[in-house]
């Protein structure tokens, strides 16, 4: 089972290594991890995508909460109103001829992706969506053109509705 865990941590040296260390120490997987300071620069918001049984996810949340530098923890999709997730991907594709360029342009329109950098041989595209939408975008693109590089941001998550994580 897939779990998206949101964490608010102190923005201090070593805090992220404690979070990551916890996962390796206890044998949990990290499928993706994103972290950046929040509007309050003393805090960082971190989103971790992990897979495991329900009780394992529960144990992860408890262990994370136990870390002294961790302020808030929530498992997004276990909240009453659920969560919203987004992932950004940057893709470079070879565009050797007009035909391919048109195909790529057309696909970008359908997916509402942006072409953010262009030269004669290579287009760079930007796409934002859920993880499965992002998977789908990349797979479709692969069928039309030669993809030479893919960079995914990892999942970002936030709770739906009136729920929010207050410091």
């Amino acid at each position: 089972m897939r779990h998206v865990i949101s964490i608010l941590i102190e923005n201090e040296a070593g805090a992220l290594s404690r979070v990551v260390g916890l996962f390796s120490q206890r044998g949990y997987n990290i499928d993706s991890l994103t972290v950046a300071p929040t509007d309050d620069p003393t805090l960082s918001r971190c989103t971790i995508l992990t897979t495991g049984e329900k009780d394992e996810a529960e144990q992860i949340t408890k262990q994370l909460h136990k870390l002294v530098c961790v302020f808030r923890v929530s498992a997004l999709f276990e909240e009453a109103e659920g969560g919203i997730e987004r992932e950004m991907v940057l893709v470079k594709v070879n565009t050797p001829n007009r035909n391919v360029r048109d195909e790529v342009k057309g696909l970008a329109d359908i997916f509402s992706a942006k072409i953010i950098d262009v030269n004669a041989e290579i287009f760079t595209l930007e796409y934002v969506g859920t993880s499965s939408e992002t998977d789908n975008f990349i797979q479709t693109l692969c069928k039309l053109a030669e993809v030479v590089e893919v960079v995914r941001s990892g999942v970002l998550g936030i709770a739906k509705g009136t729920h929010y994580m207050k410091p």
């Binding site: 040296a13 070593g14 290594s17 260390g21 530098c69």
Partner: peptide
Amino acid sequence: TMGVTRPVVKYSFLCK
């Protein structure tokens, strides 16, 4: 030291 001891302490501080 912070790195070496991290898994075996409750918490650690580096005074910068």
